[in-house]
Design a protein around this nucleic acid. Structure first.
Length: 884
RNA sequence: GGACGCUUAGCUCAGUUGGCUAGAGCAUCUCGUUUACACCGAGAGGGUCCAAGGUUCGAGUCCUUGAGCGUCCACCA
């Protein structure tokens, strides 16, 4: 073996192995109706992004599932792609322009978009190559991009259909406005942060009331109180002239349940145009709307001397003026949460604006939902349903299963409280709203393709809507737009609905929920059967990784340092769905060690096989044991993978490989080699481990085959099945005893401080295990470092020795010179003490009639067995104590 | 204000319908280079499983309450 390195060199293998798989076209499935498909639509990373640990986690998990299913015989499609990431990308390019002291307005819409396109094109390959670095076996021939012509067509198609169904509408309503991004945001694109602000108490006509935003007073049109609030009952319905900083203005007093009597004075000033709650109250009570803040976040012309100020400047000025007028009663410290933009952190300005919305409550008929012959509406009563109803139903009825299931509640809660989804954005980078306005006849047209002539009056004086669509609108179509929809392609028919959607729980709402809404509506199918949610990767202290903290780990650095397999394993093992995980270098290096262990196991197997002829027919005790262990390994790992218990499956393989195969079977093989068995077990390990660590397993698989021109590829081998004819329960048990005996001798040696190099004698009285022990006497001798081993069924106690009893088996190490009788007696007494406590506990349990009557028979039997064994050991020790 | 999660060895975490003298990796200590691997081997120490109640023959596991930490959601101006 001179040519195979002692240390596995990930760099030497990973890229070339990936290229080999790719070149052979192994990532692309065939459409084969005789086989079941397994499909995952990869959550598309931002086209201009770089790989972070969230991506790495996602890729490791999905590649694991996909590789497993591929080997298990499914036609497996993992469809990759990128997202145009409207706001995020536009912000990036604007940032670049800012360095040249330019804004997008300096360039104009067209040139700016050119620039973004260029930028995307130049950076798109980066993320793609990084995805490949992880070993992702995704089908690049079907790669998609949310802003490609095909997917844009799908976007327009859905928009048009929704418009025709009355689900998309244009309305002047209150929206979240980010002044920096200069755009609306959906409700869930708003984050919150704590702020230590002030609560201002104002004299307000007959009221005294508290507000955090005195500047909005300029837009007040009402005061609201709780309908049952006796303090204000006689004021309800009346109108008052309020003294304000710009003179008097009129308000109406309305009663609304939304008002909290406990807060402040129980009276709220109502600013319909700049507060969600106030907007709702105003709508209910037909109150006038008065917009005072514009889209730049500045006070409008109707604000007199305050016009042109930012809201904060205005707040300062108004507070000062109110103080001077004597209508500011007091100012209290007040900490509360303010809403900020999730992209840039700017404070959100709620304002009313003309926007496009998706109506989530409008009901459509049963027929319009049932587009396909499937179970979509199964067990659903009623004749018409809203987007919300159906999205709720498919999860409630179990058609879409969320792992872990506690996220069901979160999902339902969100869905039930969902308000109409504002989908128009005032940024330029994104799918332009496919609506055209005729300036001559005022006809409004929703079109799939760009149009230039009014289809009603033939005027060419048309203008397309300036706005673009929320980036999540296009990603919501991801599972089907990527398969060719609205065309009824073979891909769509075969691969949709997809089987698994794997993503972080942080985008359950942004994305997962919206995919369910869009797929059920547009295709009439659920988008996926199972949602597997992974947690966030945190640092060793449990903190979020961030640039400012400098605690981020770059997965690419880690791949460079430890190899992709090690990175994958560190993200797969020791983690549970839906829970955050911690990652740090020591963890990754630990799995790098495992990868190397596997590599060296292969080297040893090769060495042994080179020097020994195969003798597969004749299985010895150890062979039968490892065969038996291997069968249960296969069975358990398969079950765990089927149950999405990836961490369990991974650690099971890890433990078997290291602690069973390497520590025992390989050591035994140095004495009693059986090449056929060695190769068989190694082959199983490679197959089972392949979905977790594809590179090293494939590298080994290829090395084993050497220069064979017809060599096989591990990636497409069949997943192993447990073979009943290779299970030898009796022999496995015997071998376990042999292992235990060796462990005990080793332990005894250290206890009495026999130098490691010194070979000693041992007597073993094996009782019913004698034959088995004899068969493996050579192994015991070598692994326990013995000079001489005497095995008998039974015999005399050996004086001046240290002893240990494994059930009925007696072990003596005659070490006259080393045995300190006093110490040995003490050791034995301690053993007796421990055993006595144990036996007492067991007896107590077994003497309890309730236990024997109520516990299952096998549990009782197990406890009895334990007692029997403990008693045997106790007897032996007590006898031995006399000899010392 | 609601909902959820976490709390198990010094550290990071497993522990699947209750059956556990509670496990792993890292770290620590002792010893070690015989045909793979020092990215290694052998052995050892280390835990009232957050607290208090309850259900049960039996609780790390189920229920109730509480504490600490964390996350998400919501129209408290």
């Amino acid at each position: 073996m001179p040519d195979i390195a002692k240390v596995y060199d990930a760099k030497k293998y990973e890229d070339s192995i990936y290229q080999m798989w790719d070149k052979l076209g192994l990532f692309s499935p065939e459409i084969d109706p005789s086989k079941k498909p397994f499909t995952i639509a990869m959550p598309p990373p931002n086209a201009t992004g770089t790989l972070h640990l969230g991506h790495a986690t996602m890729l490791a998990l999905e590649d694991l599932m996909v590789r497993y299913k591929r080997m298990a015989g499914f036609e497996t499609l993992w469809l990759p792609g990128t997202d145009h990431a409207a706001i995020a990308t536009q912000n990036k390019v604007e940032g670049i322009l800012a360095k040249e002291h330019k804004t997008r307005h300096d360039l104009g819409r067209e040139r700016f978009l050119e620039k973004v396109k260029e930028y995307v094109a130049s950076s798109q390959d980066t993320i793609k190559n990084q995805v490949k670095k992880m070993g992702s076996s995704c089908d690049w021939s079907r790669e998609a991009y949310t802003f490609s012509d095909k997917l844009s067509f799908a976007v327009n198609t859905v928009f048009k259909r929704m418009y025709e169904d009355g689900l998309v509408y244009r309305g002047n309503r209150i929206v979240n406005w980010c002044c920096r991004c200069h755009s609306t945001l959906a409700d869930d694109e708003v984050s919150y942060k704590d702020e230590n602000g002030k609560l201002y108490w104002i004299k307000y006509g007959p009221f005294e009331l508290a507000t955090t935003r005195p500047e909005t007073k300029l837009g007040d049109t009402a005061v609201a109180v709780h309908p049952d609030d006796f303090r204000y009952k006689n004021l309800i319905g009346k109108k008052f002239n309020i003294l304000g900083v710009l003179g008097e203005f009129e308000i109406t007093v309305v009663a609304d349940e939304l008002v909290d009597r406990e807060f402040g004075s129980g009276a709220v000033k109502v600013t319909p145009s700049h507060s969600f709650m106030d907007f709702e109250i105003a709508q209910r009570h037909n109150l006038p709307f008065k917009q005072i803040i514009n889209e730049e976040g500045k006070m409008m012309d109707n604000c007199g001397k305050y016009a042109g100020m930012t809201t904060l400047e205005c707040r300062k000025a108004i507070v000062e003026d109110m103080k001077n007028m004597g209508i500011l009663l007091k100012v209290e410290d007040y900490s509360h949460k303010i809403s900020i933009c999730y992209r840039c952190g700017t404070v959100i300005e709620p304002l009313t604006s003309e926007q496009w919305f998706i109506n989530v409550n409008k009901k459509l008929s049963r027929e319009s939902w049932q587009k396909k012959d499937n179970d979509l509406l199964k067990d659903l009563e009623g004749t018409s349903f809203s987007l919300k109803d159906i999205a709720n139903h498919v999860v409630r009825s179990g058609q879409v299963k969320i792992i872990p299931d506690r996220f069901n509640n979160t999902y339902f809660h969100w869905m039930e409280n969902l308000r109409d989804w504002c989908i128009s954005r005032q940024i330029w980078w994104g799918h332009r709203v496919p609506v055209y306005y005729c300036h001559d006849c005022h006809h409004i047209m929703v079109e799939l393709e760009p149009m230039s002539v009014c289809n009603k009056c033939s005027s060419v004086n048309l203008k397309q809507d300036e706005d673009t669509l929320d980036t999540w609108f296009s990603s919501a179509l991801w599972t089907f737009s990527t398969l060719g929809w609205p065309e009824q392609t073979q891909d769509l028919k075969y691969f949709h609905p997809t089987q698994v959607m794997e993503t972080g729980y942080d985008i359950l709402f942004f994305w997962v929920a919206r995919m369910i809404i869009m797929s059920t509506y547009a295709v009439g199918e659920i988008p996926f059967e199972t949602v597997y949610l992974h947690g966030l990767v945190r640092d060793k202290e449990g903190r979020k990784m961030s640039k400012s903290l400098g605690n981020g780990i770059d997965p690419l650095d880690m791949i460079d340092k430890f190899g992709a397999d090690a990175v994958r394993l560190s993200l797969l093992i020791g983690t549970t769905p839906g829970n955050d995980m911690r990652l740090y270098e020591e963890k990754i290096s630990g799995y790098r060690n495992f990868v190397n262990k596997l590599w060296n196991a292969f080297r040893l197997v090769m060495m042994i096989c080179e020097n020994n002829a195969g003798d597969s027919a004749n299985l010895n005790l150890a062979d039968k044991w490892i065969m038996t262990e291997t069968q249960s390994l296969v069975e358990e790992v398969t079950t765990m993978l089927d149950e999405y218990r990836f961490s369990d499956a991974g650690s099971r393989i890890y433990d078997f490989t290291w602690s069973v195969f390497c520590d025992w079977y390989l050591e035994i093989s140095k004495i009693h080699p059986n090449p056929a068995v060695l190769k068989y077990v190694l082959d199983i390990i490679l197959k089972l481990a392949h979905p977790f660590s594809p590179f090293v397993t494939e590298a080994v698989y290829q090395e084993i085959q050497g220069a064979d021109p017809n060599s096989n590829i591990l990636m497409i081998q069949s997943w192993p099945k447990p073979q009943n004819d290779l299970i030898f329960a009796e022999e496995a048990k015997q071998m376990e005893t042999v292992v235990e005996v060796i462990k005990e001798i080793r332990s005894l040696r250290v206890q009495v401080k026999v130098e490691a190099v010194r070979k000693i004698q041992a007597y073993i009285y094996g009782a019913e295990m004698t034959t088995a022990l004899m068969k493996k006497s050579e192994v015991i001798k070598r692994l326990a470092n013995l000079s001489e081993l005497i095995i008998a069924q039974s015999g005399q106690k050996i004086e001046k020795s240290i002893s240990k009893f494994v059930g009925n088996i007696e072990i003596y190490l005659p070490l006259e010179s080393l045995v300190d009788s006093a110490k040995e007696r003490l050791r034995l007494k301690k053993e007796i003490e421990r055993l006595n406590a144990y036996i007492t506990a067991l007896q107590l349990k077994l003497n309890n009639n309730d236990f024997t009557a109520k516990a299952p028979a096998h549990v009782v039997e197990l406890e009895q067995q334990k007692l029997l064994t403990a008693r045997m050991e106790l007897n032996k020790i007590e006898e031995q104590l006399k000899e010392v």
